[in-house]
Amino acid sequence: MAVRSAFGASRVRGARFISRCRWWRTMVNEEGLKAMMSGKILVVEDEADLRVLICMYLDKHGFEVCTAGTGEEALALFSSAKPDVVILDIELPDMEGTDICRKIREISDVPLIFVTCRRDRDDIYNGLAIGADDYVTKPFDPAELVARVQGHLRKRNLFQSIGQNQKRWWRNGRLEVDLIEMTVKVDGQPMPFFPKELQLLQFFIHNPNRVFAAEEIFERVWGEESDSDTRTVNAHIFNLRQKIEKNPEKPLLIQTVRGFGYKFSI
């Protein structure tokens, strides 16, 4: 009963998220939204019982699932199966999930969710810094994990489709963003960004000079409401500042509004 209720709450949050983003409604029709909610998921988890449980929930909600219990299997499956989302345990018997993440990021920007027992802030920051889009600590509600997968697929498909409805270039001072190719230059030099960093930057570009609480940023960019995930937002903003601010310790673009949240000031 508790699991069913949690999943129901996740569906309500997802619907509220879509209704709030007006620019989504102009670009995503009902059929397109249904397409965003399906896909192939690679689950990399060495605990067999947990792997089966995750697969059961994903399969119930229409996802095609492939699984791996080791890093070697995961990399081979990633190349052959070409998944739309990767759920990756960090502690595997043959290699660290962080090493797998780095290898995947060399060739793909597929959404990647770490699932791990490590819950220290430094572990979370490091996981996001090397290219993970999300970080879920064990134990967790499988229904919430499914909702996160749906949110990442929804966002990825959306950001791939909106280029035709907007101008291409955005420039401000030393920062230049190609909003169609989603590439960034700082002081005229290309700057590498991870997918979620680009989505967060694009969100700020479309919403300048407005204050957003970390919870709302998470809802708008990641697709869910969750008070516990403000640390994910904080970690991504920290990384973003390192790349676009002249002095990350005294940011001029992404400003902290004490007691309220963040503002993209231009």
Rank of each mutant, 00 (worst) to 15 (best):
V43G: 01
L75P: 01
L33R: 12
V28Q: 06
A68S: 01
F63H: 12
G32F: 03
R22K: 14
L33A: 09
T70C: 02
N29L: 00
V52K: 11
L58Q: 06
W23P: 01
A15M: 15
L42H: 09
D59F: 10
G32Y: 05
R16M: 11
A35F: 05
R13D: 15
T70F: 06
N29E: 04
M37P: 00
V52Q: 13
H61W: 11
L33D: 09
A74L: 08
S19P: 00
D46W: 07
E64H: 02
D46K: 09
V65P: 06
W23L: 10
I54P: 00
F63Y: 15
S19I: 03
V28A: 06
A76I: 09
I41S: 03
V52H: 08
T67W: 06
R20L: 10
E64Y: 01
A35N: 14
V43K: 05
N29W: 01
G62T: 04
M36G: 11
A68G: 07
R51D: 00
G32E: 15
G62S: 04
A48Y: 11
T70L: 06
R25A: 14
L50H: 04
V65Y: 02
G71T: 07
L58W: 03
L75N: 03
D49V: 11
M56Y: 13
M27I: 12
K40C: 09
Y57F: 12
D49R: 13
T70H: 00
E72G: 07
T67A: 14
G32N: 08
A48K: 14
C66Q: 09
E64L: 07
M36A: 15
E30I: 10
V28H: 06
D46Q: 05
L42I: 11
T70K: 03
G71W: 13
W23T: 07
L75V: 12
G32T: 08
L33Q: 14
S19T: 05
K60M: 14
A48N: 10
G32P: 05
H61I: 03
V52F: 06
R51A: 12
A76H: 15
I41K: 06
R20M: 05
D46Y: 04
E64T: 08
L53Y: 01
R22M: 11
K40Y: 05
T67H: 08
K34Q: 15
S19L: 08
V12P: 06
V12D: 10
V44Y: 00
R13M: 15
V52D: 11
S10H: 06
F63V: 07
A74Q: 10
C21L: 11
F17N: 13
D59H: 12
R16I: 12
E73K: 02
G69C: 00
A68Y: 03
I41Y: 02
L53F: 04
I41E: 08
W24Y: 15
N29G: 04
M37Q: 14
F17G: 08
I54Q: 06
C21K: 15
G39Y: 03
E73A: 14
K60D: 13
I54Y: 05
V12A: 14
C55M: 12
S10Y: 07
W24K: 07
M56D: 13
R11E: 14
L58P: 00
